[in-house]
């Protein structure tokens, strides 16, 4: 065989473009969706395709974007994190809890200097991520279940901290990053862009990033290659929790208040952004580039539906249908790729 075998590479070339397109379907489909939606809303509403509105869309997807960075790591490893919104919420509440509130806010909180408040809040979300990591890797609870429990635990901590009240003040650094802007560009958009870029660089250019893809691509093979799979899985759970925490702090500043259940919609939005963007639910395929496209699809859809005259209750259904379509493409793309590889 060593000498007589003809190179399959030649066969691959003759199969050519069709096969290439099929293997790239998970990258192409979201992009086409984005172009189609943008074109549709641009025609349907004159107020949609404006610079101002682009700014709106960017701002609207920023918090989701920050959370989705960490979630991308998790989904690339073929795991899931359902506690992202709850951890975002509790971290946002924690940073307010450690900040001096106006006298009319009736929360028995512990005011600290801003830097300390931020560090403690970060520590909290990292610790919750660590619990997720230990549950998943040491005890062996599936991430789906483990993070479901964490979702409740984080919500419980939130409830204990604010006790049904609303806090308004966060450290000034957070206030600036969440609601300020520089040269007309909101800081929150800049932060989201930096985090997405950082996530992309880590996934593409570092050894850790390669491990993430390999563990997601074939966990058994990663183990048989002598990788410390548990360490990598643990790390992505912590990364996810910290990204959620940062998103939570910025979100609180952006909304101007910290309260229970403030982030509930962000769970679905973040998962949708990652999956709609084409990152494989089976792990190993996709990345931050996909997540960015997914964020834009979601942002354009949410924003565009506000610009056209449509029953607001119907919007929820439309979003669900788009998500379903994306899931079908996601699973289908995986099959096509597997066929191509055989």
């Amino acid at each position: 065989m060593a000498s007589s075998e003809t190179a399959p590479a030649a066969g691959q070339r003759t199969r050519g473009l069709a096969s290439f397109l099929r293997s790239q379907m998970r990258n192409i489909a979201p992009f086409l969706t984005l172009i189609f939606l943008s074109a549709f809303f641009a025609v349907a509403s004159p107020s949609f395709a404006t610079i101002d509105n682009l700014g709106n869309i960017l701002t609207q997807v920023s918090v989701t974007g920050v959370i989705a960075v960490g979630l991308t790591f998790v989904i690339l490893c073929a795991e899931i994190d359902l506690s992202i919104a709850s951890i975002a919420n509790v971290t946002g509440i924690a940073v307010a809890y450690f900040t001096l509130q106006e006298s009319y806010v009736n929360i028995p909180n512990i005011p600290l200097p801003g830097v300390a408040a931020i560090l403690l809040a970060l520590l909290l979300c990292a610790a919750l991520g660590l619990v997720n990591a230990l549950g998943l890797t040491v005890i062996g609870i599936p991430s789906f279940i483990m993070t479901l429990a964490m979702m409740q635990i984080a919500a419980g901590i939130s409830a204990l901290l604010v006790r049904g009240q609303i806090a308004y003040k966060v450290p000034s650094l957070i206030t600036t990053l969440g609601s300020g802007s520089i040269g007309g560009i909101p800081w929150i958009v800049i932060v989201a862009a930096i985090m997405l870029l950082a996530g992309h660089l880590v996934l593409t250019y570092t050894r850790f990033g390669r491990y993430v893809y390999m563990v997601g691509g074939n966990r058994e093979a990663a183990e048989y290659s002598g990788l410390n799979v548990k360490l990598i899985l643990g790390a992505v759970m912590i990364i996810s929790a910290v990204c959620s925490g940062i998103g939570g702090m910025l979100g609180v500043a952006h909304f101007g208040s910290a309260q229970q259940n403030e982030f509930d919609t962000y769970l679905l939005d973040s998962i949708a952004a990652v999956v709609v963007g084409g990152t494989s639910l089976f792990g190993g395929r996709g990345g931050i580039g996909n997540t960015i496209v997914g964020l834009f699809v979601l942002g354009v859809l949410n924003n565009g539906l506000d610009h056209v005259n449509i029953d607001s209750f119907l919007k929820i259904l439309i979003r669900g249908l788009i998500l379903l379509a994306a899931l079908i493409i996601n699973v289908y793309a995986q099959r096509l790729r597997e066929k191509a590889a055989e």
Binding site: M214, N218, E220, A221, R337
Partner: peptide, 9 residues
């Protein structure tokens, strides 16, 4: 071989 190789890489 499936157990130690990454077929899509």
């Amino acid at each position: 071989r499936r157990a130690m190789l990454f077929h899509q890489e």
